[in-house]
Simulated assay, not measured.
Amino acid sequence: MLRKKRWTVLSLLVIVSLLFAGAALAGTLQDVKARGKLLAGVKTDFPPFGFVDEKGVNKGFDVDIAKALAKELFGKDTAVEFVAVTSANRIPFLTTNKIDIILASMTITEERKKVIDYSIPYFMSGHLLLVHKDSPVTKYQDLEGRKVSTTQGSTGDIVIGKLVPKAERVKFQHNSESLKALKDRRTEAFVQDDMLLVDLQKKNPELKIVGWPPFEPAPYGLGVRKGDAEWLAFVDKTLTKMKNSGEYQKLWDAWFGESKDFLLKLK
């Protein structure tokens, strides 16, 4: 009788283990299909990649790529739920299954590769400085001993820490907070990715961009959970299909066409 009970308990453990293993092996692609929609982590304060318009609608280059993934999955680009993320929380949101993918102007770095996997590169960006028009700062080397707005979790923060260790980095959770600190003259510069600062400068004519050409350039990639090979293959296949069909170029022209002369080119 005791032996029979032991076999029953062992059988239950095996069944439970197989169920968990099956769930693990299923991966994100099956989870998304079963759910019927994609959970996409996008920024809401990083135009033209991710922002919310006056009607409260998510817009931007990354948002449109998320829609393209949803269309490839379900035949309609509306089968996607946008989850707002920041530079600091986007990876934790991914690793804790709050989102299926990061589409949030995320630079590919070796450090991040230890935690997540990246898609093929889909954009090339570098860093610039946003300052007041009367500022003496003309290049990142001038930031030594000065207060600089950075956004927590961004490569801009990391880059300035590396290139100008004597700069006083004032870290904020959101880009809007970093910008406000500069505008209020609590800091003397704001370092971030080139395309964001170009957009912000257009809306804030009292500011100017310095530091050309963009320094410490690196590509952006979409982020997926580590080891999720099937999902990553689907994402890469969709990006490649978009590039080959001309859909990617159409989106690129729509969002970046006015800035094409100075943007870094993805090789």
Rank of each mutant, 00 (worst) to 15 (best):
A70V: 08
R185V: 07
T187R: 01
M195T: 15
K250F: 10
A229I: 12
R185H: 13
D142T: 02
S87C: 07
H174W: 14
D100N: 09
V80F: 02
S245W: 10
K202P: 05
T151C: 07
V16R: 03
I102C: 00
V170I: 14
F20V: 06
A88F: 12
K139L: 08
D77N: 13
R146P: 00
D236P: 11
V9C: 07
F93D: 06
G211E: 09
I116D: 00
L128M: 14
S259W: 15
N97T: 04
A66K: 03
P47C: 05
V14M: 13
L207D: 09
V164Y: 02
D184N: 12
S87N: 13
S87V: 02
T96H: 11
K55S: 14
Y220R: 02
G41E: 04
G27C: 07
G36P: 09
G161S: 10
P217R: 03
K208M: 15
L266T: 07
L129C: 05
A23I: 11
N89W: 08
I160N: 00
G60P: 07
K37E: 13
G223P: 02
A229W: 06
K226Y: 01
F51T: 07
G223K: 05
K166I: 01
R3H: 11
T151R: 05
S259I: 07
G126T: 06
K250W: 07
Q201H: 13
R6Y: 10
Q152T: 15
P136F: 09
P136E: 06
D236C: 06
T78W: 04
S125F: 07
T151P: 03
V57R: 12
F20E: 09
